[in-house]
């Protein structure tokens, strides 16, 4: 059976304590929220931190607060996000996405902050240690080269979080707290187009809150493609958010794809086509066509990349159709 490598476990009671503890270990520690992805990865020795800083005991990381918009503290579990009435009614794509993450058991453990910071994935990376040892390690862990694209100087591991495309599509922001104080950044700036350094935050910074602006009539939807309707990670996620003006024209549009690159991918051209227009069948087709082009999945997850690319068009169209019916 697989064993967790040895580590120290610390359970701070406040954000400040957590951040200070992290700094003490100088990079040899990791934050652990739900741990639902972290612990299996540790068993496979993708991570061997000296210490884990468990965040479950920190009360100020839990809860959903209605303010001008809505603030979801990062330690809120995915099942709480999925079942929250305001999120369900006004930010429904987020409730949907949270409800589609992995398994019911893991949603009860896993947190929104954890899902937003989910490690990128790749067929060559997400393997048991002895498997990787036998084949040769890849650049994301212990190796030098990328197995998917051996000539590449970068890692192409895939952003596989269900919630990130939604938070980006909803114009969300995240609050980061680190040893140098705190800052708030746009959710889209939380991600970088790199399979290894995929987060646009410093390692010692902790995501403490997710801030969503007032819904203001914005309708949103999230669709997920995977081989079975079971615990699989998304091989394509489509988050779409539209706000309609009183005359029925689209006043604001964002479409963000997950599972097709190292970061959530925004379909800028699709949004541009939608702005100021009424949502017709033709327009949906055009927006879906525009979304399809920039999606460049690689052959490093389940299913073929050509299929995932094709499905981008189908799923974006379905997402917009769902919004037109809402």
């Amino acid at each position: 059976m697989l064993r967790l490598p040895p580590f120290e476990y610390h359970a701070p009671r406040s954000i400040e304590q957590a951040v200070n503890l992290y700094a003490q270990f100088g990079g040899a520690a990791m934050f652990a929220a739900g741990g639902t992805d972290l612990y299996p990865n540790m068993k496979r020795r993708q991570f061997t931190p000296q210490a884990l800083i468990g965040l479950n005991g920190i009360d100020e990381l839990r809860g959903i607060v209605q303010d001008n918009g809505i603030t979801i503290r990062a330690g809120t579990t995915l099942s709480q996000v999925a079942s929250h009435p305001i999120l369900q009614s006004q930010y429904s794509a987020l409730a949907t996405a949270a409800n589609l993450v992995s398994t019911p058991q893991l949603r009860a453990m896993g947190t929104l902050g954890g899902n937003l910071c989910l490690d990128t994935r790749c067929n060559y990376y997400n393997q048991e240690f002895s498997w990787r040892q036998a084949l040769g390690f890849c650049m994301k862990k212990d190796g030098e080269i990328c197995m998917v694209a051996p000539g590449s100087s970068r890692c192409w591991a895939v952003s596989s979080t269900d919630c990130a495309p939604v938070v980006v599509a909803l114009d969300g922001r995240v609050r980061l707290v680190g040893p140098r104080g705190e800052r708030v950044i746009a959710a889209s700036d939380l991600y970088r187009d790199d399979g290894i350094l995929y987060l646009g935050k410093e390692r010692d910074e902790l995501v403490t809150e997710i801030l969503l602006p007032p819904a203001d009539g914005t309708k949103s939807v999230y669709l997920k493609l995977r081989r079975r309707d079971s615990f699989d990670f998304p091989i394509l996620g489509v988050a779409a958010a539209l706000r309609f003006a009183s005359n029925g024209e689209i006043a604001n549009a964002r479409i963000v794809l997950g599972g097709v690159g190292s970061r959530p991918l925004e379909c800028v051209e699709s949004a541009r086509l939608l702005m100021g227009q009424k949502l017709t069948r033709e327009l949906i087709g055009a927006a879906a066509e525009a979304a399809w082009k920039p999606a460049r999945p690689l052959d490093n997850t389940d299913s073929t990349h050509s299929y995932r690319k094709k499905m981008t068009r189908v799923y974006v169209a379905r997402a917009l159709e769902a919004l037109s019916e809402k």
Binding site: Y9, Y39, K43, N56, T103, Q105, A108, M109
Partner: peptide, 15 residues
């Protein structure tokens, strides 16, 4: 009151 996968749940979390 919450079902969890105990194979990846660090025992100390159940403190």
């Amino acid at each position: 009151g919450t079902p969890v996968d105990s194979c990846i749940y660090p025992a100390l979390k159940a403190q």
